[in-house]
Amino acid sequence: MSRPAVIRNVYRSLQTCGSAKNLLNIYKGLASPVFFEFVQRETSGHEAEVSIIVKDNLPCYVLRGDKLVWKTSSGRIKSVVMDDLNPGQRYSIIINELDSGVKPEIRLIRPTGYTAAEY
Score class of each variant (00 low, 15 high):
1 M>W: 13
5 A>G: 01
8 R>T: 14
9 N>S: 15
11 Y>L: 14
13 S>F: 00
15 Q>I: 10
20 A>Q: 13
21 K>G: 04
23 L>Q: 15
23 L>S: 14
27 Y>I: 13
28 K>I: 01
29 G>W: 02
31 A>R: 15
34 V>K: 00
35 F>N: 02
38 F>C: 04
40 Q>G: 02
40 Q>F: 07
43 T>R: 11
44 S>H: 14
47 E>T: 14
48 A>E: 03
50 V>R: 00
50 V>L: 03
51 S>W: 03
52 I>K: 06
54 V>Q: 05
56 D>G: 10
57 N>D: 15
58 L>P: 01
61 Y>F: 15
67 K>M: 06
69 V>W: 01
70 W>L: 07
70 W>V: 00
71 K>F: 05
73 S>P: 03
74 S>N: 11
79 S>H: 12
82 M>Y: 05
82 M>V: 09
83 D>C: 07
83 D>W: 02
84 D>I: 04
85 L>T: 08
87 P>E: 08
89 Q>M: 12
89 Q>K: 14
89 Q>W: 02
92 S>V: 04
93 I>G: 04
93 I>M: 12
94 I>E: 04
98 L>H: 02
98 L>S: 01
98 L>R: 01
99 D>M: 10
100 S>E: 09
101 G>W: 08
101 G>N: 05
104 P>G: 12
105 E>R: 13
106 I>L: 00
110 R>K: 15
110 R>V: 04
112 T>L: 10
113 G>E: 05
117 A>Q: 13
118 E>W: 08
119 Y>P: 05
119 Y>G: 06
